[in-house]
Lab assay of single mutants.
Amino acid sequence: MTTFKLIINGKTLKGEITIEAVDAAEKEKIFKQYANDNGIDGEWTYDDATKTFTVTE
Score class of each variant (00 low, 15 high):
Met1Pro: 09
Met1Lys: 13
Met1Gly: 09
Met1Leu: 11
Met1His: 07
Met1Gln: 08
Met1Glu: 06
Thr2Ala: 06
Thr2Gln: 08
Thr2Ser: 07
Thr3Gly: 04
Thr3Met: 10
Thr3Ile: 13
Thr3Cys: 14
Phe4Leu: 08
Phe4Met: 03
Phe4Arg: 04
Phe4Asp: 05
Phe4Ala: 06
Leu6Ser: 00
Leu6Ala: 02
Leu6Glu: 04
Ile7Thr: 02
Ile7Lys: 04
Ile7Asp: 00
Ile7Ser: 01
Ile7Tyr: 05
Ile7Met: 03
Ile8Ser: 01
Ile8Gly: 00
Ile8Asn: 00
Ile8Phe: 11
Ile8Gln: 00
Ile8Val: 08
Asn9Val: 12
Asn9Leu: 13
Asn9Ala: 07
Asn9Asp: 05
Asn9Ile: 14
Gly10Phe: 14
Gly10Ala: 05
Gly10Leu: 15
Gly10Val: 09
Gly10Lys: 04
Gly10Cys: 15
Gly10Gln: 03
Lys11Met: 11
Lys11Gln: 07
Lys11Tyr: 08
Thr12His: 12
Thr12Leu: 12
Thr12Glu: 11
Thr12Trp: 12
Thr12Ala: 07
Thr12Tyr: 14
Leu13Trp: 15
Leu13Ala: 05
Leu13Glu: 06
Leu13Gln: 07
Leu13Asp: 03
Lys14Val: 13
Lys14Asn: 08
Lys14Gln: 09
Gly15Pro: 03
Gly15Met: 15
Glu16Ser: 10
Glu16Pro: 07
Glu16Arg: 07
Glu16Lys: 05
Glu16Cys: 15
Ile17Trp: 13
Ile17Leu: 08
Thr18Pro: 03
Thr18Tyr: 14
Thr18Ala: 06
Thr18Val: 10
Thr18Glu: 06
Ile19Asn: 01
Ile19His: 02
Ile19Cys: 15
Glu20His: 12
Glu20Ile: 13
Glu20Trp: 14
Glu20Phe: 13
Glu20Met: 13
Ala21Arg: 05
Ala21Asn: 11
Ala21Gly: 14
Val22Trp: 13
Val22Tyr: 11
Val22Met: 08
Val22Ser: 12
Val22Thr: 10
Asp23Pro: 07
Asp23His: 06
Asp23Gln: 04
Asp23Trp: 11
Asp23Gly: 06
Asp23Leu: 05
Asp23Met: 06
Ala24Glu: 11
Ala24Val: 13
Ala24Met: 12
Ala25Thr: 09
Ala25Ile: 11
Ala25Asn: 08
Ala25Ser: 10
Ala25Trp: 13
Ala25Met: 09
Ala25Cys: 11
Glu26Tyr: 09
Glu26Gly: 12
Glu26Thr: 08
Glu26Ala: 07
Glu26His: 08
Glu26Arg: 03
Lys27Cys: 15
Lys27Arg: 14
Lys27Tyr: 15
Glu28Ala: 07
Glu28Trp: 15
Glu28Arg: 05
Lys29Thr: 09
Lys29Pro: 03
Lys29Asn: 11
Phe31Lys: 01
Phe31Val: 13
Phe31Gln: 00
Phe31Leu: 08
Phe31Pro: 01
Phe31Trp: 08
Phe31Thr: 01
Phe31His: 00
Lys32Ile: 11
Lys32Tyr: 09
Lys32Thr: 08
Lys32Phe: 09
Lys32Asp: 05
Gln33Cys: 10
Gln33Asp: 06
Gln33Trp: 08
Gln33Ile: 07
Gln33Lys: 11
Gln33Val: 04
Gln33Pro: 00
Tyr34Glu: 00
Ala35Leu: 15
Ala35Val: 08
Ala35Phe: 12
Ala35Asn: 02
Ala35Arg: 04
Ala35Pro: 01
Ala35Tyr: 06
Asn36Leu: 14
Asn36Asp: 13
Asn36Val: 12
Asn36Ile: 14
Asp37Met: 10
Asp37Leu: 10
Asp37Ser: 06
Asp37Lys: 07
Asp37Arg: 07
Asp37Val: 08
Asn38Pro: 02
Asn38Trp: 15
Asn38His: 13
Asn38Gln: 10
Asn38Phe: 15
Gly39Ile: 04
Gly39Glu: 03
Gly39Cys: 10
Gly39His: 06
Gly39Pro: 03
Ile40Pro: 01
Ile40Glu: 02
Ile40Asn: 01
Ile40Lys: 01
Ile40Gly: 01
Ile40Trp: 13
Ile40Tyr: 06
Ile40Val: 06
Ile40Cys: 11
Ile40Ser: 02
Asp41Leu: 14
Asp41Gln: 12
Asp41Pro: 05
Asp41Phe: 15
Asp41Glu: 12
Asp41Thr: 13
Asp41Gly: 07
Asp41His: 12
Gly42Leu: 10
Gly42Ala: 05
Gly42Met: 06
Gly42Lys: 03
Glu43Tyr: 12
Glu43Leu: 10
Glu43Ala: 09
Trp44Met: 03
Trp44Val: 04
Trp44Gln: 00
Thr45His: 08
Thr45Gln: 05
Thr45Phe: 08
Thr45Gly: 03
Thr45Leu: 05
Thr45Pro: 00
Thr45Glu: 08
Thr45Ser: 13
Tyr46Asp: 00
Tyr46Ile: 00
Asp47Lys: 00
Asp47Gly: 01
Asp47Cys: 05
Asp47Pro: 00
Asp47Thr: 01
Asp47Ala: 01
Asp48His: 05
Asp48Cys: 05
Asp48Lys: 04
Asp48Ala: 09
Asp48Asn: 04
Asp48Val: 05
Asp48Pro: 09
Asp48Ser: 07
Ala49Cys: 09
Ala49Ser: 07
Ala49Ile: 09
Ala49His: 08
Ala49Leu: 11
Ala49Lys: 07
Ala49Phe: 08
Thr50Ser: 09
Thr50Tyr: 02
Thr50Ile: 03
Lys51Val: 06
Lys51Gln: 07
Lys51Ala: 04
Lys51Tyr: 10
Lys51Glu: 03
Lys51Asn: 09
Thr52His: 03
Thr52Trp: 02
Thr52Asp: 01
Thr52Tyr: 01
Phe53Pro: 01
Phe53Ser: 05
Phe53Cys: 15
Phe53Thr: 11
Phe53Leu: 06
Phe53Gly: 01
Phe53Met: 06
Thr54Gly: 01
Thr54Met: 07
Thr54Leu: 05
Thr54Arg: 04
Thr54Ile: 07
Thr54Asp: 01
Thr54Lys: 04
Thr54Phe: 12
Val55Ile: 10
Val55Asn: 02
Val55Lys: 04
Thr56Glu: 04
Glu57Gly: 08
Glu57Ala: 10
Glu57Ile: 15
Glu57Asn: 08
Glu57Tyr: 14
Glu57Leu: 15
